[in-house]
Every structure is written in structure tokens, then in C-alpha cells.
């Protein structure tokens, strides 16, 4: 989750988010280079006294400042395309988890074994422990086994929502009548927090998402207790 004074991306908890962070840094570097270059030229234009009444065209310089940005854009586009295809890739998953966006909560379905369904509501401030995160924690967390390929299937029951976990590099719209898939794996155990990312009505800000990443052994135990309930 985002902690104090953090302005950039969250630390990655999955290989995909790691790649996304690398891409972000790469693009930001190019951006800084462009800003410095353009800034330097702007300053040069502001503070010089040179004039040239008959300078009407410069084919060479125009050629350079057309081709150079094009090449720069290719250096952004190629890693971006590579990443977008990697993000779309579904390696044969270990489990499928369905989540349905509702106004205003998420419900989860684990149907690979027996059918497990539960709703995940925000814990209101009045009910929460002093140690928990305000407006971010839920009563029933979505539990996943770590270091395993998870297939998320995302849909909605009423309006468009968006299921998001920044540290996993996941953000998928939940659209009524449509089933979207995203696949990820968690590098470590722990809690990952996210919030609905598509304006979905009055309580849009109060339907957070919590993923609890635990070892597969404990995941089996958790699943077994969920079946008994």
C-alpha cells in the first residue's frame, strides 16, 4: 500500500509490476532528457539578442527535429508494446478467482473446488482497530497463495467498477455483462490494498480491495475452513 511521503509508484509485489516500474523509470528518463533539452533551447531563445531578418526556412533543422522525436517515440513505444503483450499473457493458472463489483462492495467467488462466495465490505472507522488502515481494510479479504499463477475474472452487477491492486500492477474494469481476465502472481506474503478505480456512484471511495497473500499450505487450510462455513 502507499505509505507516508511516497509520491511515486508503490513497491512491486509481482514480476509484472516490477516490469511496469522499470518502464516507468525508462520513460521518465527520456522525459527528463527532453525537458532539459527543450528548456535549454527556450532559455537560449529568451536571453539572446541575435536576429536574422531573412531566415525563412531551414530544411536540415526541420528534418532533424522531425526524425529525432520519431526515433525517441519508438524507444518508448517498443518497450510499451512488449509490456502490454506480457500483461495480457495467461500462463496456465493455478486457480481462478471471480470478483463482481456491486454498488458498493466487491464480492468474490472461488469455484474451482466447492463453491465459495463471500462479500467484501469496508470496515467503517467506528468498527476498526487502531492498528488497521482507515477506509482501506475490509471484513473479508481475498486470499491468494503466493508464488502461484492466479487468474482473476472481473465483472460487475450494476455499473462499471474497476478492480485495482497497484502493487501487483493490476487494474481491470468491471463491466456488467462482460468478463475480463487478468493474471498475476504475488512475489511474497502480505497484504495488498487497492480501491475501486472507476467512478461508480456515491460510495465509490468506500469499496476498497484487500488481497491477502499467504503460503499455499495455509491457503489450502483457509479454503477448507471456508468450505465448512
Amino acid at each position: 500500500m502507499a505509505t507516508w511521503k511516497s509520491l511515486l509508484l508503490q513497491d512491486s509485489a509481482s514480476p509484472l509490476m516490477e516490469q511496469l516500474s522499470f518502464f516507468h523509470d525508462h520513460t521518465l528518463l527520456i522525459l527528463v532528457i527532453i525537458t532539459i533539452l527543450v528548456g535549454q533551447m527556450m532559455m537560449g531563445l529568451f536571453f539572446n539578442k541575435y536576429t536574422h531578418r531573412y531566415l525563412l526556412e531551414g530544411q536540415l533543422i526541420e528534418l532533424i527535429w522531425t526524425i529525432l522525436p520519431a526515433i525517441t517515440l519508438i524507444f518508448i513505444a517498443l518497450p510499451s508494446l512488449r509490456l502490454i503483450y506480457i500483461l495480457d499473457e495467461t500462463i496456465n493458472p493455478l486457480i481462478s478467482i471471480k470478483t463482481i463489483g456491486h454498488q458498493w462492495y466487491w464480492s468474490y467467488e472461488y469455484s474451482d473446488f466447492k463453491n465459495i462466495e463471500f462479500d467484501s465490505y469496508l470496515i467503517p472507522q467506528t468498527d476498526m482497530k487502531n492498528s488497521s488502515f482507515r477506509l482501506l481494510d475490509v471484513d473479508n479479504r481475498m486470499t491468494i497463495p503466493y508464488l502461484s499463477q492466479v487468474r482473476m475474472l472481473i465483472s460487475a452487477a450494476d455499473v462499471i467498477h474497476s478492480w485495482t491492486i497497484p502493487s501487483l500492477g493490476v487494474k481491470v474494469d468491471a463491466t456488467p455483462g462482460r468478463l475480463n481476465q487478468v493474471s498475476f502472481t504475488s512475489n511474497r506474503t502480505g497484504l495488498m490494498f487497492g480501491q475501486c478505480s472507476e467512478i461508480c456512484g456515491a460510495n465509490h471511495s468506500f469499496m476498497p480491495i484487500v488481497v491477502e497473500s499467504i503460503s499455499p499450505k495455509y491457503f489450502i487450510k483457509w479454503i477448507s475452513t471456508m468450505i465448512e462455513i
Binding site: 495467461t90 500462463i91 496456465n92 493458472p93 493455478l94 486457480i95 481462478s96 474451482d112 473446488f113 497463495p145 502461484s148 487468474r151 499455499p216 499450505k217 489450502i220 479454503i223 477448507s224 468450505i227
Partner: peptide, 11 residues
């Protein structure tokens, strides 16, 4: 359930 039961619909 055991770990071997973790199976789902393939790609």
C-alpha cells in the same frame, strides 16, 4: 483438500 487439488480451467 491438498495442494494437488489446486487446479482450474486451462488457458
Amino acid at each position: 483438500l491438498t495442494l494437488e487439488d489446486l487446479k482450474t480451467a486451462p488457458f
